[in-house]
Nucleic acid binder design. Structure first.
Lengths: 232, 232
DNA sequence: TCTATATAACTGACCAGTCAGTTACTAACA
DNA sequence: TGTTAGTAACTGACTGGTCAGTTATATAGA
C-alpha cells in the first residue's frame, strides 16, 4: 500500500521512493490514526496493523515511536484532552467577576467538545479498559480527572468564598456538575442511533442543567434569580 | 478439576460419578459464574474456559445452554437487572401520594444497589462493548434504559400534572436525574481505589443530589421547602 | 438398551510484539 | 561536483500465544 503522505516535493526523476524518512511528522500522524481506530473499535479490539495502515506506515514503524500499544493509547489521550484542559484551567485562573457565568462558559465549552469532536470517545475507552489495565485508569485519573475536578472545585470554592454561592459540600457538588457531561459523552459514543432513537441533544441538555444549577448553587437573593417560570 | 457443585446427595456406594446431569440447575450456575468473570475482565477479555471452570462444568457444556458468548452476556444482564427494574416499576405504579418522596426512595434504592452489589458493573460492560457489539447496545437500550427512563419519566409527568413539580422539559430532566447514578456505577467499577483516593461515597453523593433535586423539581411553595440553610 | 447430557481434545483465526533485512538520506572525501 | 561509505528510518514476515466455537467420544440416568 502506498503511503497516504506521499512525497510533498516529488523528485523530478524516475519513480518516487517507496517511502520517505519523516521522523518529525510520524508521531502525530500515528497518534491521529490511532485515535480513529481506537474510537471505532475500543482499545483491546483495535489492531495495530490497521493503525499503521491508516498512518501510511508499517507496523514495525509504530514501535520505533511508541514502545507499546498502551503507551500509544496514552499519547492519544494526551493529544486529545490536554490542550482543552489547559484552556479550561487558564480560563478559570484568569477570569475575574462572578463565578456562575464562568461556570456556564465552561460547561458550554465542554458540551460543545463532546457534541462535535472525537474527544467524546476517550472516557468510554478508559472506562472500558479500566479493569484490564489499571495503570491506564490511574494515568487517566491523575492526568485528566483530578485536574478537571480541580478546575470546577476551584470555581466553587471561589463562589462560596465571595458569597455568590451557597455553602455546600464541594466534592459531591463537583461530581454532580460533571456527571451530565460524562453521561453525554458516553451516550453519544454508545447509544446514539440505536433502536431508532433520535440522537442526544447535548446543548439542550446542558441548558437545562445550567438552569438547574442556577437554582442549586446561587445564594437566594430575594428577586427571581431562577428560571422564568417560577413564583409570581 | 472437580466440580464446585458436587453431588448434593452423594451416592453411598463406590466412587461418585465424574459428573451428573443437572439440566435445571446449570443455566443459573453458569450465569452466576459468567457474571463474576465478566465483572472482573470485561466482555471481550472474559474467557469462557474460566466461566466454565467456575461453574464446575466444561466449556462444551456452556454451548449446550447458550448459543454464543453474546447470548450468555445478555442472560447475565437480564438476571442482574430485570428483577430490580420490575420492582421499581411496581413501586411507582402502585404508590399514591406525593411524588418527591417516591423519587427519593427510588434513588436511594438504586444507589444502594450500585454501592453494594455487582450489578454496578453492567453499565460499564455495555458501554465498553457498545462499539463492537451494536446489537448488545440495542438490547440494553431496549430492555433496560428505555424502561428505566420510563419509570422516572412517569413519575415526573405525574408530579407535574398534580402541581407538585414545576413544569419542565421531561426528557432532559430524566437524564439529569439519572446521570449521577450512572457516574457512580462507572466510578465504582473503574476508578475506586486508584491513585490512593478514598472510595466514592455513593449514599452521601445521593443525599446531596436529592437535596438539589428538591430545589429544582418542586414548585415554590412560599415556605422554606428547600434544604435547611436557606432564607430566614 | 437408548439417548440426553457432559467432556476434552481439537480447529481455525486472530494479533501484539520482534527482528533480520532493505532503503532513503547524509556527509566525508575525491 | 560526483562518488561512496555509513546510518537512521522503515519494512514485513514471523513467532508465540490466546481463545471462541466444534466435534468425537463417554457416561449418567431412564
Amino acid at each position: 500500500m502506498p503511503s497516504r503522505h506521499p512525497n510533498p516535493d516529488p523528485a523530478p526523476d524516475g519513480d518516487p521512493p517507496r517511502w520517505r524518512r519523516r521522523k518529525d511528522a510520524r508521531p502525530q500522524e500515528i497518534v491521529a490514526a490511532a485515535m480513529e481506530v481506537f474510537a471505532e473499535r475500543g482499545f483491546a479490539a483495535a489492531r495495530l496493523e490497521e493503525v499503521a495502515a491508516r498512518a501510511g506506515v508499517s507496523k514495525g514503524t509504530l514501535y520505533l515511536y511508541f514502545p507499546s500499544k498502551e503507551e500509544l493509547f496514552k499519547a492519544v489521550i494526551r493529544a486529545a484532552i490536554l490542550p482543552n484542559l489547559e484552556q479550561a484551567e487558564a480560563m478559570v485562573a484568569s477570569a475575574g467577576g462572578p463565578c456562575f457565568p464562568l461556570l456556564e462558559r465552561l460547561l458550554r465549552m465542554v458540551a460543545r467538545l463532546i457534541a462535535t469532536t472525537r474527544m467524546a470517545v476517550i472516557p468510554r475507552l478508559v472506562i472500558a479498559e479500566a479493569g484490564n489495565f489499571p495503570e491506564l485508569a490511574a494515568f487517566y485519573h491523575h492526568e485528566v480527572i483530578r485536574r478537571g475536578f480541580g478546575v470546577v472545585s476551584a470555581l466553587l470554592w471561589r463562589g462560596i468564598g465571595s458569597g455568590e454561592f451557597r455553602p455546600m459540600p464541594v466534592d459531591p457538588s463537583v461530581r454532580l456538575i460533571v456527571a451530565p457531561l460524562l453521561m453525554s459523552a458516553v451516550w453519544r459514543t454508545s447509544f446514539d442511533g440505536v433502536d431508532g432513537e433520535p440522537p442526544l441533544d447535548v446543548p439542550a441538555l446542558m441548558e437545562v442543567h445550567i438552569d438547574n444549577l442556577r437554582r442549586v448553587l446561587l445564594r437566594d437573593t430575594g428577586d427571581g434569580a431562577g428560571a422564568g417560570d417560577g413564583a409570581p
